[in-house]
Design a protein around this nucleic acid. Structure first.
Lengths: 257, 257
DNA sequence: CCATCTTTGTGCACGCGTTCACAAAGACAT
DNA sequence: ATGTCTTTGTGAACGCGTGCACAAAGATGG
Protein backbone atom coordinates (compact mmCIF):
# COMPACT_ATOMS: atom_id res chain seq x y z
CA UNK A 1 0.00 0.00 0.00
CA UNK A 2 1.31 3.42 0.73
CA UNK A 3 2.43 4.38 -2.66
CA UNK A 4 5.09 6.89 -3.36
CA UNK A 5 7.21 5.68 -0.53
CA UNK A 6 10.17 5.60 -2.80
CA UNK A 7 11.91 8.78 -3.48
CA UNK A 8 15.51 8.14 -2.69
CA UNK A 9 16.81 4.92 -1.24
CA UNK A 10 19.26 7.03 0.64
CA UNK A 11 16.79 8.50 3.08
CA UNK A 12 17.29 6.52 6.22
CA UNK A 13 18.70 8.97 8.65
CA UNK A 14 15.42 10.48 9.76
CA UNK A 15 13.34 7.57 8.57
CA UNK A 16 11.19 6.01 11.22
CA UNK A 17 10.28 2.40 10.36
CA UNK A 18 6.77 2.05 9.03
CA UNK A 19 5.95 -0.55 11.63
CA UNK A 20 6.89 1.92 14.33
CA UNK A 21 4.79 4.68 12.83
CA UNK A 22 1.82 2.36 12.87
CA UNK A 23 2.25 1.83 16.59
CA UNK A 24 2.76 5.43 17.60
CA UNK A 25 -0.99 6.15 17.64
CA UNK A 26 -1.38 3.18 19.95
CA UNK A 27 1.17 4.54 22.38
CA UNK A 28 -0.33 7.97 22.12
CA UNK A 29 -3.73 6.68 23.10
CA UNK A 30 -2.38 4.84 26.11
CA UNK A 31 -0.34 7.86 27.13
CA UNK A 32 -3.31 10.17 26.83
CA UNK A 33 -5.27 7.93 29.15
CA UNK A 34 -2.42 8.07 31.66
CA UNK A 35 -2.19 11.81 31.26
CA UNK A 36 -5.83 12.17 32.18
CA UNK A 37 -5.23 10.25 35.30
CA UNK A 38 -2.37 12.62 36.04
CA UNK A 39 0.21 9.87 36.05
CA UNK A 40 3.58 11.63 35.81
CA UNK A 41 5.78 8.83 34.49
CA UNK A 42 5.54 5.30 33.14
CA UNK A 43 8.02 2.53 32.61
CA UNK A 44 8.31 0.87 29.24
CA UNK A 45 6.88 -2.24 30.85
CA UNK A 46 3.72 -0.55 32.04
CA UNK A 47 3.13 1.42 28.88
CA UNK A 48 3.77 -1.61 26.74
CA UNK A 49 1.15 -3.55 28.66
CA UNK A 50 -1.35 -0.75 28.21
CA UNK A 51 -0.69 -0.59 24.52
CA UNK A 52 -0.70 -4.34 24.11
CA UNK A 53 2.83 -4.69 22.81
CA UNK A 54 6.20 -6.03 23.88
CA UNK A 55 8.25 -3.71 26.11
CA UNK A 56 11.43 -4.25 24.12
CA UNK A 57 9.58 -3.29 20.97
CA UNK A 58 8.23 -0.18 22.61
CA UNK A 59 11.65 0.91 23.77
CA UNK A 60 13.11 0.37 20.34
CA UNK A 61 10.25 2.32 18.81
CA UNK A 62 10.90 5.23 21.11
CA UNK A 63 14.60 5.06 20.40
CA UNK A 64 13.82 6.09 16.83
CA UNK A 65 12.26 9.27 18.13
CA UNK A 66 15.16 10.05 20.40
CA UNK A 67 16.08 9.45 23.99
CA UNK A 68 13.06 10.72 25.81
CA UNK A 69 13.24 8.40 28.79
CA UNK A 70 15.17 8.49 32.03
CA UNK A 71 16.97 5.35 33.04
CA UNK A 72 15.89 4.01 36.34
CA UNK A 73 12.67 6.02 36.16
CA UNK A 74 10.82 5.68 32.90
CA UNK A 75 9.19 8.15 30.54
CA UNK A 76 7.61 11.48 31.31
CA UNK A 77 4.02 11.09 30.19
CA UNK A 78 3.30 14.67 29.17
CA UNK A 79 6.53 15.09 27.35
CA UNK A 80 6.05 11.87 25.46
CA UNK A 81 2.51 12.81 24.50
CA UNK A 82 3.84 15.99 23.04
CA UNK A 83 6.72 14.36 21.20
CA UNK A 84 4.59 11.67 19.63
CA UNK A 85 1.88 14.14 18.69
CA UNK A 86 4.45 16.29 17.02
CA UNK A 87 6.01 13.36 15.24
CA UNK A 88 2.65 12.27 13.91
CA UNK A 89 1.82 15.77 12.81
CA UNK A 90 -1.11 16.09 15.16
CA UNK A 91 -0.09 19.47 16.45
CA UNK A 92 -1.60 20.97 13.38
CA UNK A 93 -5.15 20.85 12.16
CA UNK A 94 -5.91 18.59 9.21
CA UNK A 95 -9.00 19.41 7.24
CA UNK A 96 -10.58 16.26 5.85
CA UNK A 97 -13.29 15.67 3.29
CA UNK A 98 -15.54 12.63 3.28
CA UNK A 99 -16.90 11.59 -0.09
CA UNK A 100 -19.91 9.31 -0.22
CA UNK A 101 -22.39 9.97 2.53
CA UNK A 102 -24.19 6.66 2.70
CA UNK A 103 -24.53 4.64 5.86
CA UNK A 104 -20.81 4.45 6.31
CA UNK A 105 -20.04 8.00 5.35
CA UNK A 106 -22.59 9.24 7.84
CA UNK A 107 -21.11 7.02 10.52
CA UNK A 108 -17.68 8.43 9.81
CA UNK A 109 -18.96 11.98 9.89
CA UNK A 110 -20.43 11.32 13.30
CA UNK A 111 -17.33 9.58 14.49
CA UNK A 112 -15.92 11.43 17.44
CA UNK A 113 -12.39 10.43 16.59
CA UNK A 114 -12.27 12.84 13.71
CA UNK A 115 -12.75 16.01 15.60
CA UNK A 116 -10.95 14.93 18.71
CA UNK A 117 -7.39 14.90 17.57
CA UNK A 118 -6.09 17.15 14.89
CA UNK A 119 -8.65 16.21 12.28
CA UNK A 120 -11.56 18.36 11.21
CA UNK A 121 -14.30 17.43 8.81
CA UNK A 122 -14.12 20.22 6.28
CA UNK A 123 -16.91 18.92 4.10
CA UNK A 124 -19.21 16.04 3.31
CA UNK A 125 -19.65 15.31 -0.35
CA UNK A 126 -22.13 13.10 -2.17
CA UNK A 127 -23.08 12.55 -5.78
CA UNK A 128 -26.78 12.35 -5.03
CA UNK A 129 -28.43 15.75 -5.60
CA UNK A 130 -31.11 14.78 -3.13
CA UNK A 131 -28.51 14.73 -0.39
CA UNK A 132 -27.37 18.27 -1.06
CA UNK A 133 -27.93 20.59 1.84
CA UNK A 134 -29.08 17.76 4.04
CA UNK A 135 -27.35 18.10 7.40
CA UNK A 136 -25.32 15.13 8.58
CA UNK A 137 -23.46 15.40 11.85
CA UNK A 138 -24.20 19.07 11.83
CA UNK A 139 -22.64 19.66 8.44
CA UNK A 140 -24.50 20.25 5.23
CA UNK A 141 -23.81 17.74 2.50
CA UNK A 142 -22.46 19.25 -0.69
CA UNK A 143 -22.67 17.99 -4.21
CA UNK A 144 -19.78 16.37 -6.00
CA UNK A 145 -19.58 19.34 -8.35
CA UNK A 146 -18.17 21.34 -5.47
CA UNK A 147 -15.39 18.88 -4.80
CA UNK A 148 -12.52 20.71 -6.44
CA UNK A 149 -13.57 24.05 -5.07
CA UNK A 150 -13.90 22.74 -1.53
CA UNK A 151 -10.53 21.07 -1.57
CA UNK A 152 -8.69 24.02 -2.95
CA UNK A 153 -10.29 26.67 -0.81
CA UNK A 154 -9.83 24.69 2.37
CA UNK A 155 -6.39 23.37 1.63
CA UNK A 156 -7.54 19.81 2.14
CA UNK A 157 -4.84 17.21 1.73
CA UNK A 158 -6.57 14.19 3.23
CA UNK A 159 -9.63 12.61 1.69
CA UNK A 160 -11.85 9.75 2.82
CA UNK A 161 -13.62 7.68 0.20
CA UNK A 162 -16.78 5.94 1.36
CA UNK A 163 -18.49 5.55 -1.96
CA UNK A 164 -19.58 2.36 -3.71
CA UNK A 165 -16.71 0.49 -5.33
CA UNK A 166 -17.70 1.57 -8.80
CA UNK A 167 -17.25 5.26 -8.09
CA UNK A 168 -14.12 5.04 -5.98
CA UNK A 169 -11.46 5.33 -8.66
CA UNK A 170 -13.18 8.24 -10.31
CA UNK A 171 -13.56 10.07 -7.02
CA UNK A 172 -9.96 9.26 -6.22
CA UNK A 173 -8.75 10.75 -9.47
CA UNK A 174 -10.63 13.96 -8.83
CA UNK A 175 -9.36 14.21 -5.28
CA UNK A 176 -5.80 13.76 -6.40
CA UNK A 177 -6.17 16.19 -9.27
CA UNK A 178 -7.50 18.77 -6.85
CA UNK A 179 -4.52 18.43 -4.57
CA UNK A 180 -5.29 15.64 -2.10
CA UNK A 181 -2.19 13.57 -1.37
CA UNK A 182 -3.45 11.14 1.28
CA UNK A 183 -6.49 8.94 0.90
CA UNK A 184 -8.28 6.63 3.28
CA UNK A 185 -10.26 4.23 1.15
CA UNK A 186 -13.26 2.30 2.43
CA UNK A 187 -14.42 1.14 -0.96
CA UNK A 188 -13.56 -2.46 -1.82
CA UNK A 189 -11.38 -1.58 -4.78
CA UNK A 190 -7.72 -1.27 -5.57
CA UNK A 191 -7.06 2.39 -6.20
CA UNK A 192 -4.44 3.53 -8.65
CA UNK A 193 -2.70 6.73 -7.74
CA UNK A 194 0.36 8.62 -8.93
CA UNK A 195 3.58 8.56 -7.00
CA UNK A 196 3.60 10.75 -3.98
CA UNK A 197 0.05 9.95 -3.02
CA UNK A 198 -0.55 7.70 -0.04
CA UNK A 199 -3.47 5.34 0.07
CA UNK A 200 -4.57 3.30 3.03
CA UNK A 201 -7.49 1.01 2.77
CA UNK A 202 -9.95 -0.32 5.28
CA UNK A 203 -11.80 -3.33 4.04
CA UNK A 204 -14.35 -4.99 6.26
CA UNK A 205 -14.95 -8.05 4.14
CA UNK A 206 -11.26 -8.79 3.96
CA UNK A 207 -10.98 -8.66 7.73
CA UNK A 208 -13.89 -11.03 8.06
CA UNK A 209 -12.44 -13.42 5.53
CA UNK A 210 -9.16 -13.53 7.41
CA UNK A 211 -11.04 -14.32 10.58
CA UNK A 212 -13.00 -17.01 8.78
CA UNK A 213 -9.76 -18.60 7.65
CA UNK A 214 -8.46 -18.90 11.20
CA UNK A 215 -11.85 -19.94 12.45
CA UNK A 216 -12.01 -22.74 9.96
CA UNK A 217 -8.58 -23.85 10.98
CA UNK A 218 -9.54 -23.91 14.63
CA UNK A 219 -12.60 -25.99 13.89
CA UNK A 220 -10.26 -28.67 12.67
CA UNK A 221 -9.91 -29.77 9.15
CA UNK A 222 -13.33 -31.41 9.24
CA UNK A 223 -14.87 -31.68 5.88
CA UNK A 224 -18.12 -30.66 7.49
CA UNK A 225 -19.44 -28.10 5.03
CA UNK A 226 -22.50 -27.16 7.01
CA UNK A 227 -22.69 -23.85 8.71
CA UNK A 228 -23.75 -25.62 11.79
CA UNK A 229 -22.62 -25.00 15.29
CA UNK A 230 -18.88 -24.99 15.62
CA UNK A 231 -17.71 -26.62 18.78
CA UNK A 232 -16.61 -23.93 21.16
CA UNK A 233 -14.00 -24.35 23.83
CA UNK A 234 -11.96 -26.48 21.52
CA UNK A 235 -8.24 -26.43 22.00
CA UNK A 236 -7.00 -24.73 18.96
CA UNK A 237 -3.65 -25.03 17.33
CA UNK A 238 -2.15 -21.76 16.30
CA UNK A 239 -3.33 -18.82 18.30
CA UNK A 240 -2.55 -15.73 16.39
CA UNK A 241 -3.35 -12.77 18.50
CA UNK A 242 -4.60 -10.15 16.15
CA UNK A 243 -1.83 -7.70 16.07
CA UNK A 244 -1.02 -7.29 12.51
CA UNK A 245 -0.27 -4.08 10.87
CA UNK A 246 -1.87 -3.56 7.55
CA UNK A 247 -5.59 -3.29 7.65
CA UNK A 248 -7.60 -4.51 4.83
CA UNK A 249 -11.22 -4.27 4.90
CA UNK A 250 -14.10 -2.98 3.11
CA UNK A 251 -17.20 -1.38 4.14
CA UNK A 252 -19.49 0.52 1.95
CA UNK A 253 -22.31 -0.29 -0.26
CA UNK A 254 -22.74 -3.11 -2.59
CA UNK A 255 -19.77 -5.03 -3.68
CA UNK A 256 -20.25 -6.58 -7.04
CA UNK A 257 -20.25 -10.25 -6.47
CA UNK B 1 7.05 -28.78 -5.79
CA UNK B 2 6.85 -31.74 -8.10
CA UNK B 3 6.50 -34.00 -5.17
CA UNK B 4 4.28 -36.94 -4.57
CA UNK B 5 0.67 -36.77 -3.54
CA UNK B 6 1.05 -35.27 -0.15
CA UNK B 7 2.59 -31.87 -0.53
CA UNK B 8 4.35 -30.11 2.26
CA UNK B 9 7.92 -31.25 1.97
CA UNK B 10 8.96 -29.55 5.14
CA UNK B 11 8.32 -25.95 4.41
CA UNK B 12 4.69 -25.66 5.30
CA UNK B 13 4.51 -28.06 8.14
CA UNK B 14 2.09 -25.78 9.84
CA UNK B 15 0.26 -23.53 7.47
CA UNK B 16 -0.03 -20.72 5.03
CA UNK B 17 1.94 -17.57 5.87
CA UNK B 18 -0.16 -14.93 7.53
CA UNK B 19 0.81 -12.35 4.94
CA UNK B 20 -0.46 -14.65 2.22
CA UNK B 21 -3.75 -15.25 3.99
CA UNK B 22 -4.26 -11.52 4.19
CA UNK B 23 -3.92 -11.26 0.42
CA UNK B 24 -6.15 -14.15 -0.55
CA UNK B 25 -9.32 -12.07 -0.20
CA UNK B 26 -7.75 -9.56 -2.53
CA UNK B 27 -7.11 -12.18 -5.16
CA UNK B 28 -10.55 -13.60 -4.66
CA UNK B 29 -12.15 -10.27 -5.34
CA UNK B 30 -10.19 -9.76 -8.53
CA UNK B 31 -10.93 -13.30 -9.65
CA UNK B 32 -14.63 -12.88 -8.98
CA UNK B 33 -14.67 -9.82 -11.18
CA UNK B 34 -12.97 -11.79 -13.95
CA UNK B 35 -15.37 -14.64 -13.47
CA UNK B 36 -18.30 -12.31 -13.99
CA UNK B 37 -16.81 -11.21 -17.24
CA UNK B 38 -16.48 -14.87 -18.17
CA UNK B 39 -12.75 -14.69 -18.51
CA UNK B 40 -11.54 -18.29 -18.55
CA UNK B 41 -7.90 -17.88 -17.53
CA UNK B 42 -5.50 -15.24 -16.26
CA UNK B 43 -1.77 -15.00 -16.05
CA UNK B 44 -0.09 -14.17 -12.79
CA UNK B 45 0.90 -10.88 -14.34
CA UNK B 46 -2.64 -9.84 -15.16
CA UNK B 47 -4.13 -10.99 -11.91
CA UNK B 48 -1.38 -9.36 -9.93
CA UNK B 49 -2.07 -6.06 -11.64
CA UNK B 50 -5.77 -6.36 -10.88
CA UNK B 51 -5.08 -7.11 -7.25
CA UNK B 52 -2.46 -4.43 -6.96
CA UNK B 53 0.43 -6.67 -6.02
CA UNK B 54 3.68 -8.00 -7.45
CA UNK B 55 3.34 -10.99 -9.78
CA UNK B 56 6.14 -12.93 -8.12
CA UNK B 57 4.44 -12.47 -4.79
CA UNK B 58 1.18 -13.70 -6.20
CA UNK B 59 2.75 -16.81 -7.65
CA UNK B 60 4.48 -17.58 -4.40
CA UNK B 61 1.22 -17.07 -2.54
CA UNK B 62 -0.55 -19.51 -4.82
CA UNK B 63 2.28 -21.98 -4.49
CA UNK B 64 1.33 -22.36 -0.83
CA UNK B 65 -2.09 -23.50 -1.88
CA UNK B 66 -0.78 -25.98 -4.40
CA UNK B 67 -0.12 -26.03 -8.10
CA UNK B 68 -3.28 -24.70 -9.57
CA UNK B 69 -1.79 -23.05 -12.62
CA UNK B 70 -0.77 -24.27 -16.03
CA UNK B 71 2.60 -23.22 -17.30
CA UNK B 72 2.46 -21.32 -20.52
CA UNK B 73 -1.20 -20.51 -19.96
CA UNK B 74 -2.00 -19.19 -16.54
CA UNK B 75 -4.64 -19.94 -13.95
CA UNK B 76 -8.16 -21.21 -14.48
CA UNK B 77 -10.33 -18.50 -13.02
CA UNK B 78 -13.25 -20.60 -11.85
CA UNK B 79 -11.08 -23.24 -10.33
CA UNK B 80 -9.01 -20.69 -8.47
CA UNK B 81 -12.09 -18.94 -7.16
CA UNK B 82 -13.24 -22.23 -5.74
CA UNK B 83 -9.90 -23.15 -4.23
CA UNK B 84 -9.38 -19.81 -2.55
CA UNK B 85 -12.95 -19.73 -1.28
CA UNK B 86 -12.47 -23.14 0.21
CA UNK B 87 -9.15 -22.22 1.74
CA UNK B 88 -10.66 -19.16 3.35
CA UNK B 89 -13.57 -21.14 4.64
CA UNK B 90 -16.11 -19.23 2.60
CA UNK B 91 -17.87 -22.31 1.34
CA UNK B 92 -19.66 -22.47 4.60
CA UNK B 93 -21.99 -20.01 6.18
CA UNK B 94 -20.66 -17.97 9.09
CA UNK B 95 -23.24 -16.48 11.39
CA UNK B 96 -22.05 -13.15 12.79
CA UNK B 97 -23.34 -10.93 15.57
CA UNK B 98 -22.82 -7.20 15.65
CA UNK B 99 -22.75 -5.61 19.08
CA UNK B 100 -23.31 -1.89 19.37
CA UNK B 101 -25.83 -0.56 16.90
CA UNK B 102 -24.80 3.07 16.72
CA UNK B 103 -23.95 4.84 13.51
CA UNK B 104 -21.21 2.44 12.64
CA UNK B 105 -23.03 -0.68 13.75
CA UNK B 106 -25.97 0.27 11.58
CA UNK B 107 -23.68 0.92 8.66
CA UNK B 108 -22.11 -2.48 9.09
CA UNK B 109 -25.50 -4.14 9.32
CA UNK B 110 -26.50 -2.55 6.06
CA UNK B 111 -23.26 -3.46 4.41
CA UNK B 112 -23.92 -5.74 1.50
CA UNK B 113 -20.59 -7.42 1.84
CA UNK B 114 -21.77 -9.36 4.82
CA UNK B 115 -24.46 -11.34 3.14
CA UNK B 116 -22.71 -11.60 -0.17
CA UNK B 117 -19.91 -13.90 0.73
CA UNK B 118 -20.34 -16.53 3.35
CA UNK B 119 -21.30 -14.22 6.17
CA UNK B 120 -24.74 -13.81 7.63
CA UNK B 121 -25.82 -11.32 10.24
CA UNK B 122 -27.36 -13.55 12.87
CA UNK B 123 -28.25 -10.75 15.24
CA UNK B 124 -27.82 -7.10 16.11
CA UNK B 125 -27.27 -6.40 19.77
CA UNK B 126 -27.33 -3.15 21.71
CA UNK B 127 -27.28 -2.21 25.35
CA UNK B 128 -29.86 0.53 24.94
CA UNK B 129 -33.31 -0.81 25.83
CA UNK B 130 -34.84 1.82 23.59
CA UNK B 131 -33.21 0.13 20.61
CA UNK B 132 -34.76 -3.24 21.33
CA UNK B 133 -37.07 -4.39 18.63
CA UNK B 134 -36.15 -1.51 16.40
CA UNK B 135 -35.49 -2.82 12.92
CA UNK B 136 -32.10 -2.05 11.41
CA UNK B 137 -31.28 -3.42 8.00
CA UNK B 138 -34.36 -5.56 8.27
CA UNK B 139 -33.29 -7.17 11.49
CA UNK B 140 -34.73 -6.41 14.91
CA UNK B 141 -32.21 -5.18 17.42
CA UNK B 142 -31.97 -7.32 20.53
CA UNK B 143 -30.91 -6.35 23.99
CA UNK B 144 -27.54 -7.27 25.43
CA UNK B 145 -29.22 -9.59 27.88
CA UNK B 146 -29.90 -11.93 25.00
CA UNK B 147 -26.25 -12.06 23.96
CA UNK B 148 -25.32 -15.43 25.41
CA UNK B 149 -28.52 -17.06 24.28
CA UNK B 150 -28.19 -15.76 20.73
CA UNK B 151 -24.63 -16.92 20.37
CA UNK B 152 -25.22 -20.36 21.71
CA UNK B 153 -28.41 -21.09 19.85
CA UNK B 154 -27.01 -19.87 16.55
CA UNK B 155 -23.57 -21.33 16.92
CA UNK B 156 -21.98 -17.95 16.35
CA UNK B 157 -18.20 -17.98 16.40
CA UNK B 158 -17.49 -14.53 14.93
CA UNK B 159 -18.44 -11.33 16.69
CA UNK B 160 -18.15 -7.70 15.63
CA UNK B 161 -17.73 -5.06 18.32
CA UNK B 162 -18.91 -1.58 17.39
CA UNK B 163 -19.54 -0.23 20.85
CA UNK B 164 -17.96 2.74 22.58
CA UNK B 165 -14.44 2.06 23.84
CA UNK B 166 -15.56 1.82 27.42
CA UNK B 167 -17.87 -1.09 26.81
CA UNK B 168 -15.68 -3.04 24.41
CA UNK B 169 -13.72 -5.19 26.85
CA UNK B 170 -16.81 -6.15 28.77
CA UNK B 171 -18.66 -7.09 25.60
CA UNK B 172 -15.60 -8.96 24.43
CA UNK B 173 -15.46 -10.99 27.62
CA UNK B 174 -19.09 -11.96 27.30
CA UNK B 175 -18.70 -12.91 23.66
CA UNK B 176 -15.72 -15.10 24.42
CA UNK B 177 -17.39 -16.69 27.42
CA UNK B 178 -20.37 -17.53 25.24
CA UNK B 179 -18.20 -19.28 22.67
CA UNK B 180 -17.06 -16.66 20.17
CA UNK B 181 -13.49 -17.29 19.07
CA UNK B 182 -12.98 -14.58 16.46
CA UNK B 183 -13.58 -10.89 17.03
CA UNK B 184 -13.49 -7.91 14.74
CA UNK B 185 -13.04 -4.86 16.93
CA UNK B 186 -13.96 -1.35 15.83
CA UNK B 187 -13.67 0.18 19.27
CA UNK B 188 -10.45 2.10 19.90
CA UNK B 189 -9.25 -0.13 22.69
CA UNK B 190 -6.77 -2.90 23.19
CA UNK B 191 -8.77 -6.02 23.87
CA UNK B 192 -7.45 -8.75 26.11
CA UNK B 193 -8.52 -12.23 25.16
CA UNK B 194 -7.51 -15.75 26.14
CA UNK B 195 -5.34 -17.91 23.92
CA UNK B 196 -7.15 -19.38 21.00
CA UNK B 197 -9.23 -16.29 20.34
CA UNK B 198 -8.41 -14.14 17.33
CA UNK B 199 -8.85 -10.42 17.42
CA UNK B 200 -8.50 -8.09 14.49
CA UNK B 201 -8.94 -4.40 14.93
CA UNK B 202 -10.04 -1.66 12.63
CA UNK B 203 -9.22 1.74 13.93
CA UNK B 204 -10.13 4.79 11.94
CA UNK B 205 -8.24 7.29 14.01
CA UNK B 206 -5.06 5.25 13.80
CA UNK B 207 -5.31 5.11 10.03
CA UNK B 208 -5.78 8.84 9.87
CA UNK B 209 -2.86 9.46 12.15
CA UNK B 210 -0.61 7.34 9.99
CA UNK B 211 -1.70 9.34 6.96
CA UNK B 212 -1.06 12.55 8.84
CA UNK B 213 2.46 11.39 9.58
CA UNK B 214 3.25 10.84 5.93
CA UNK B 215 1.45 14.00 4.97
CA UNK B 216 3.53 16.02 7.37
CA UNK B 217 6.66 14.46 5.99
CA UNK B 218 5.71 15.37 2.46
CA UNK B 219 5.02 18.93 3.49
CA UNK B 220 8.48 19.53 4.84
CA UNK B 221 11.19 17.22 3.64
CA UNK B 222 13.96 19.48 4.72
CA UNK B 223 13.10 20.89 8.07
CA UNK B 224 15.44 20.42 10.95
CA UNK B 225 14.66 17.27 12.87
CA UNK B 226 15.12 18.52 16.34
CA UNK B 227 14.08 21.68 17.93
CA UNK B 228 10.66 22.93 17.59
CA UNK B 229 8.06 24.11 15.23
CA UNK B 230 7.82 21.92 12.21
CA UNK B 231 7.15 24.17 9.30
CA UNK B 232 3.70 23.46 7.96
CA UNK B 233 5.14 24.71 4.74
CA UNK B 234 2.67 22.71 2.87
CA UNK B 235 0.01 23.44 0.43
CA UNK B 236 -2.59 26.04 1.05
CA UNK B 237 -3.08 27.57 4.39
CA UNK B 238 -4.14 24.80 6.61
CA UNK B 239 -4.89 26.58 9.82
CA UNK B 240 -2.33 25.69 12.37
CA UNK B 241 -3.81 25.14 15.74
CA UNK B 242 -1.83 26.92 18.32
CA UNK B 243 -2.84 24.66 21.10
CA UNK B 244 -5.77 22.47 21.53
CA UNK B 245 -4.54 19.93 23.91
CA UNK B 246 -6.99 20.47 26.70
CA UNK B 247 -9.51 17.98 27.95
CA UNK B 248 -9.83 15.98 24.84
CA UNK B 249 -9.07 12.50 25.85
CA UNK B 250 -9.02 10.83 22.56
CA UNK B 251 -11.28 8.05 23.41
CA UNK B 252 -13.16 8.48 20.25
CA UNK B 253 -15.30 5.52 19.87
CA UNK B 254 -17.73 4.60 17.28
CA UNK B 255 -20.15 5.51 19.90
CA UNK B 256 -23.79 6.17 19.37
CA UNK B 257 -24.15 8.91 21.88
C1' DC C 1 31.45 9.61 47.35
C1' DC C 2 30.53 4.93 46.66
C1' DA C 3 27.46 0.92 46.31
C1' DT C 4 23.34 -0.81 44.73
C1' DC C 5 19.21 -0.95 42.28
C1' DT C 6 16.15 0.17 38.49
C1' DT C 7 15.11 0.90 33.81
C1' DT C 8 16.50 2.56 29.45
C1' DG C 9 18.77 2.06 25.00
C1' DT C 10 20.75 -1.06 21.76
C1' DG C 11 23.90 -4.69 19.54
C1' DC C 12 22.88 -8.99 17.75
C1' DA C 13 20.63 -12.96 16.06
C1' DC C 14 16.68 -14.94 14.16
C1' DG C 15 12.66 -15.55 11.32
C1' DC C 16 9.31 -13.86 8.12
C1' DG C 17 8.21 -11.73 3.90
C1' DT C 18 9.62 -9.85 -0.52
C1' DT C 19 11.95 -9.95 -4.73
C1' DC C 20 14.92 -11.69 -8.26
C1' DA C 21 16.08 -14.78 -11.61
C1' DC C 22 15.80 -19.03 -13.83
C1' DA C 23 14.92 -23.94 -14.71
C1' DA C 24 10.98 -26.82 -15.49
C1' DA C 25 6.63 -27.60 -17.66
C1' DG C 26 3.41 -27.31 -20.77
C1' DA C 27 1.17 -25.10 -25.18
C1' DC C 28 1.65 -24.45 -29.91
C1' DA C 29 3.51 -24.38 -34.59
C1' DT C 30 5.94 -26.80 -38.00
C1' DA D 1 8.36 -35.36 -32.98
C1' DT D 2 10.96 -31.49 -32.34
C1' DG D 3 11.78 -26.80 -31.43
C1' DT D 4 10.22 -22.46 -29.77
C1' DC D 5 7.69 -19.65 -26.82
C1' DT D 6 5.12 -18.54 -22.77
C1' DT D 7 4.32 -18.69 -17.97
C1' DT D 8 4.54 -21.11 -13.76
C1' DG D 9 6.85 -22.61 -9.53
C1' DT D 10 10.69 -22.00 -6.57
C1' DG D 11 15.63 -21.71 -4.78
C1' DA D 12 18.20 -18.20 -2.92
C1' DA D 13 19.47 -13.59 -1.50
C1' DC D 14 18.07 -9.69 0.83
C1' DG D 15 15.87 -6.51 4.03
C1' DC D 16 12.77 -5.50 7.69
C1' DG D 17 10.85 -6.31 12.06
C1' DT D 18 11.04 -8.70 16.48
C1' DG D 19 12.80 -10.22 20.76
C1' DC D 20 16.71 -11.33 23.75
C1' DA D 21 20.01 -10.06 26.73
C1' DC D 22 23.05 -6.88 28.62
C1' DA D 23 25.86 -2.77 29.30
C1' DA D 24 25.21 2.06 30.22
C1' DA D 25 22.94 5.70 32.70
C1' DG D 26 20.82 7.61 36.19
C1' DA D 27 18.25 7.36 40.78
C1' DT D 28 18.54 6.23 45.52
C1' DG D 29 20.45 5.20 49.99
C1' DG D 30 24.15 4.92 53.26
Amino acid sequence: MATGRTHRPATRSRGIPEATVARLPLYLRALTALSERSVPTVSSEELAAAAGVNSAKLRKDFSYLGSYGTRGVGYDVEYLVYQISRELGLTQDWPVVIVGIGNLGAALANYGGFASRGFRVAALIDADPAMAGKPVAGIGVQHTDELEHIIESNGVSIGVIATPAGAAQQVCDRLVAAGVTSILNFAPTVLTVPDGVDVRKVDLSIELQILAFHEQRKAGEDGGPDGGAPAPAGRAAAAVTGDRKGPDGDVPAVMPA
